[in-house]
């Protein structure tokens, strides 16, 4: 009595396999005739997603240009530096990022090492039997004498180096170790330009060595 509501369950489950398949065929035929189409040929969402190459963006409309990546999202001022070979440790947008990060890092290193040297020098030079306030003052005086001096000098060298390096990159259109070495040599020479030829040469050699060491460190870290 309730077969129209709950479906006929008893007859097909107890019959044999052949009988089930023929029964299914019969059911499909019946459904096809009542519905007007074959329900097994209808694709659902999982069928669509399983089809091969469905996520291939080149098969979408060619005018959308989706196969080129998401370049329409790359805003002008957010592009990374695209000079050949310029991809360093920190992603850099342009020469100004290189300048800021390079100068800042070297300046802080110089400040730190100079400060440590001044700390050691100050501890060694504490006057005998001085009150604690005077002891602290001695140490602070030595730190602030050595730290900023070394920091300023190294910061100026790093700034000159980065400016020359970026200029060479722009002129040559690519970045390699030769640029770094040349920029180091020039920066070192400019730093001691007023002291005479020999100090200039020594400083130039030292700066070139530092630039070469930095190239090696960069290659090791990457």
């Amino acid at each position: 009595m309730s077969s129209w509501l709950f479906g006929s369950s008893s007859s097909s489950s107890q019959s044999s396999k052949d009988a089930t398949s023929t029964n299914n065929d019969n059911n499909n035929e019946k459904l096809k005739q009542t519905l007007g189409f074959d329900p097994s040929s209808v694709t659902d969402v999982s069928n669509i997603l399983k089809a091969p190459g469905i996520f291939d963006s080149s098969r979408l409309h060619p005018l959308a240009g989706l196969d080129k990546g998401i370049e329409y999202l790359d805003l002008e001022d957010e592009q990374l530096n695209n000079v050949e070979g310029s991809q360093g440790i920190i992603p850099s947008r342009s020469w100004s990022d290189d300048l800021c990060y390079g100068t800042g890092a070297v300046y802080l290193l110089g400040l730190g090492f100079g400060g440590l040297y001044g700390l050691q020098e100050g501890i060694n030079n504490i006057p005998k039997g001085a009150p604690p306030k005077l002891q602290l003052n001695t140490i602070l005086n030595h730190i602030t004498k050595r730290g900023p001096f070394l920091g300023n000098s190294s910061g100026v060298i790093a700034m000159t180096y980065n400016i020359i390096d970026s200029t060479l990159d722009a002129v040559r259109g690519k970045h390699d170790d030769l640029n770094s070495l040349g920029a180091g040599a020039l920066a070192g020479a400019i730093f001691r330009a007023s002291a005479g030829v020999k100090p200039m040469f020594i400083s130039s050699v030292l700066a070139t060595g530092a630039a070469g060491a930095w190239c090696g460190i960069k290659r090791y870290l990457q």
Partner: peptide, 15 residues
């Protein structure tokens, strides 16, 4: 990381 950038930027500006 922006601290490093500001250190360098301000130093370069001042120098």
């Amino acid at each position: 990381i922006v601290i490093l950038n500001d250190f360098g930027g301000a130093f370069a500006m001042g120098a």
